[in-house]
Design a protein around this nucleic acid. Structure first.
Length: 438
DNA sequence: TAGAAAGAGGAACGGTACGG
DNA sequence: CCGTACCGTTCCTCTTTCTA
């Protein structure tokens, strides 16, 4: 069942684990979309995500400002989508082509608002020497920018895929990673083909399931299992007939990404240093000489350098780490204690409260968007974790007042997004304008 | 009802076009 | 030169369905 994992891919995953994530909070309606009248390449898909991420950040910085046209530096765009070729022609062509692609938004909610039924993917794109300008259709902007229901998509992972359908399938299954049932939705195989590949003509050989599976599905599943933080498994449903009718996936998060390792723990560091290839003597010396915070900083420094493709490759990460530690390469790691004063403390608490409220609202939206069976599973899990009966969420829908539900939302938010990290709070404070970088 | 035929899918090949 | 996308082919297995 477990896919073959080469040491190389494991190393790549381990490296990924130590980088800063690049999360796009992508509205689910924009994930559940299908290209009509053509196919979408990986470059286009990633570019759309990169541009959306950029626009969302822009939007968060200036919430009041109604921006018509966004711009992103070409360098940054190319970095996010992993476009390394010096030949810009194809990037330009791919982006220009996006103006011709139309999409069916919110594909899963068939009875949804018909206003978003179909619309051009990117109505406007322009270039100059080092910037790319783009804008969205006015009708879909609220959906893109104000959506409460989103999935966290890690663009670092998505750009490591080489196969088009792998990037597309990953995006779809990633959205179901937190489902208690560990299942995606079930769709006819032609709908899956539509979502992860595009619309095909009547004469295409991809009208045969076995060809689609051979050329698109299987390679995509293989690549996702090898390179991503998820393992997925295909379920085929023949529905009594001879041919495969419906497809579904089992989605599980890989172990390494589930538990945040305790970096203060010497044992954990011992193992990490060993994995890197350091000898027992070196490990002992390093752990005895430097505090873990310093090792951690240099570890991150080393990993960033190792995965930096713009510089010559590092032959031996372990030797590099040693040298980095000896030379104290990493910038200062002294933890900055927050400036004292009760005013600051109160401002901090205020940010924390607002952050919690926002997250709870997001958790509520997520819950309401779940399938009935999944929602009840979540509630059952929550109830099981309650010591006392009075805090349990009642079975009767009518009786589910905020007295019960708000703690549930908080629990759910913590479960899915974890404890807010300092970065989360910092980001949030920046976005809401509570603090500013000057 | 046994055996043939047909349908669906899988495995392992092959090729061309094209871009980095 | 290699990897990806796309398009074929041949031979095989398994299951359903047809038919003598």
């Amino acid at each position: 069942m477990t896919p073959e994992e080469t040491p190389g891919s494991q190393m790549a995953l381990a490296l990924l684990f130590d980088q800063q994530p690049e999360i796009l909070k992508k509205p689910v309606q924009a994930i559940h979309m299908a290209i009509t009248g053509g196919i979408q390449s990986k470059t286009q898909r990633l570019a759309f995500n990169a541009m959306l991420k950029h626009a969302l950040e822009e939007h968060a910085r200036n919430p009041g400002l109604e921006t018509e046209t966004y711009s992103i530096s070409r360098e940054e765009l190319m970095r996010i989508i992993g476009y390394s070729s010096p030949n810009r022609k194809h990037l330009k062509e791919a982006l220009t082509q996006m103006q011709k692609l139309t999409v069916q938004w919110d594909f899963l909610r068939k009875d949804g608002d018909p206003m978003w039924a179909s619309c051009v993917l990117l109505p406007f794109v322009a270039f100059d020497r080092d910037k790319v300008f783009y804008s969205y259709a006015a009708q879909i902007k609220p959906m893109l920018f104000d959506s409460k229901i989103y999935a966290r998509l890690d663009l670092r992972i998505q750009r490591t895929f080489r196969l088009d359908p792998a990037a597309a399938l990953y995006e779809w299954v990633n959205r179901f990673r937190t489902n208690p049932s560990k299942r995606t939705n079930e769709m006819t195989w032609t709908d899956w083909r539509w979502c992860i590949y595009g619309e095909v003509s009547e004469t295409s050989i991809l009208n045969e399931y076995k060809i689609f599976k051979r050329d698109k599905l299987k390679p995509a599943i293989k690549e996702i299992n090898e390179k991503s933080d998820l393992t997925i498994e295909l379920i085929e449903n023949r529905d009594g007939s001879r041919s495969v009718k419906y497809l579904q996936f089992i989605v599980e998060e890989k172990q390494i990404f589930r538990a945040i390792p305790d970096v203060d723990d010497k044992g954990e560091w011992e193992k990490r240093l060993e994995d890197l290839g350091l000898s027992a003597r070196d490990r002992k010396k390093i752990l005895a000489t430097y505090p873990t915070a310093v090792i951690d900083a240099h570890w991150k420094f080393t990993m960033a350098r190792v995965s930096d493709k713009s510089q010559p490759a590092i032959k031996s990460p372990s030797a590099y780490l040693k040298r980095a530690l000896e030379g104290n390469f990493a910038p200062d790691v002294v933890e900055k204690a927050p400036a004292g004063g009760t005013q600051d403390m109160e401002a901090m608490r205020d940010i924390q409260t607002k952050f919690t409220q926002t997250r709870n609202a997001e958790a509520e939206a997520m819950l309401s968007e779940m399938l009935e069976v999944d929602r009840e599973a979540v509630i059952a899990e929550y109830n099981a974790a309650q010591d006392s009966k009075v805090t349990q969420v009642p079975q009767d829908n009518e009786k589910r007042t905020s007295r019960y539900m708000v703690p549930l939302f908080a629990w759910l938010a913590k479960k899915h997004w974890g404890e807010p990290t300092p970065q989360d709070l910092f980001q949030f404070a920046l976005q809401t304008g509570a603090i500013s970088l000057k």
